[in-house]
Design a protein around this nucleic acid. Structure first.
Length: 279
DNA sequence: AATGACTCCTGTGCGC
DNA sequence: TGCGCACAGGAGTCAT
């Protein structure tokens, strides 16, 4: 489900609801998520005040007093339900109960998500975060940084951008949309892109993510904002899930065949062959 | 080192 | 209406 803009939206929602509160307890209904939740999870975080939040790629980090952090990944189908009901919604595996009597539920039907606790100073060396690529919206993420990540890669640019070691936080939707904005064919070998194309791609990644965050992310199936509302960036998609529809950048061009769908590394890719060039 | 296949799991939507 | 199958926003692990 969630890519960087959705995760950012979820984190902001959690921040509003949880920051400054004290975790009373964590109710764990299922331990067997992507990785088994540690048996002492609730015991370790109980009684601690929530003092801050951070996002790294598609991971949410919730900082607690006493140098402890909760790390959370939503997987494909995870979502956060704030002020969740006492009668659990289906697949609500973890509930954080705070000192104001409110409840923050982690719902994840497919159980591809995870939640764990670690010392805050160890965040960046945590095994799932170590080796993660640059944050695309950080000030130091430059076109040169991106160029460096793509250099000497023969794999397609689509596949390479999905690799979290190259750029953190991109997923299938925003990669398709960024490549469209940059006018780059998804099958282009990453290492063959010209400087100018990489500059366009760098700008496209930043613009599409920034706009999507402003829209509260994209709501397709599972994704709802923590407060229950929908994101609306899905209305701004130009190619994703638009197979057969007219390309928004080739209005009326007879040679345009519209948005095409191909499969790359087992994932759906949507693009306009005319607007995004031939290989 | 780099790449792609496989895997985890459930829900949904489609064709028949 | 019901059934079976393909597919879904992720990503670690393993084999090549």
């Amino acid at each position: 489900m969630p890519e960087l803009p959705e995760v950012e939206t979820v984190m902001r929602g959690m921040q509003i609801a949880l920051q400054g509160r004290v975790i009373q307890t964590a109710i764990i209904r299922r331990y067997d998520l992507r990785w088994r939740i540690s048996a002492d999870f609730s015991q370790r975080i109980s009684g601690r005040k929530v003092i801050g939040f951070r996002r790294r790629g598609k991971y949410i980090l919730m900082r607690l007093a006493g140098d402890l952090s909760v790390i959370l990944h939503l997987g494909m189908s995870g979502r956060i339900v704030l002020d969740s009901d006492k009668t659990p919604v289906p697949h609500e595996h973890v509930v954080l109960v705070t000192d104001d009597g409110k409840r923050c539920g982690f719902v994840d039907p497919r159980r591809f998500g995870m939640i764990d606790v670690l010392p805050t100073p160890m965040e960046d060396t945590y095994r799932l975060l170590a080796g993660m690529g640059p944050e695309p919206l950080d000030a130091d993420f430059s076109s040169a940084t991106l160029e460096n990540g793509l250099a000497r890669k023969n794999a397609s640019i689509k596949t390479v951008l999905l690799d979290q070691k190259i750029v953190a936080g991109l997923g299938n939707i925003y990669v398709c949309e960024a490549l469209f904005r940059a006018g780059i064919h998804p099958e282009t070998p990453a290492g063959t892109l010209k400087k100018k194309q990489i500059r366009l791609l760098h700008g496209a990644i930043q613009s599409v993510l920034t706009e999507a965050i402003a829209a509260g992310g994209s709501s397709l199936k599972d994704y709802v904002r923590p407060e229950g509302g929908l994101g609306y960036f899905q209305h701004a998609w130009k190619v994703y899930a638009r197979k057969g529809q007219a390309c928004p950048d080739c209005p009326g061009l007879p040679e345009c065949e519209g948005v095409q769908h191909i499969t790359q590394a087992g994932r759906s890719t949507f693009f306009c062959p005319l607007h995004q060039g031939k290989r």
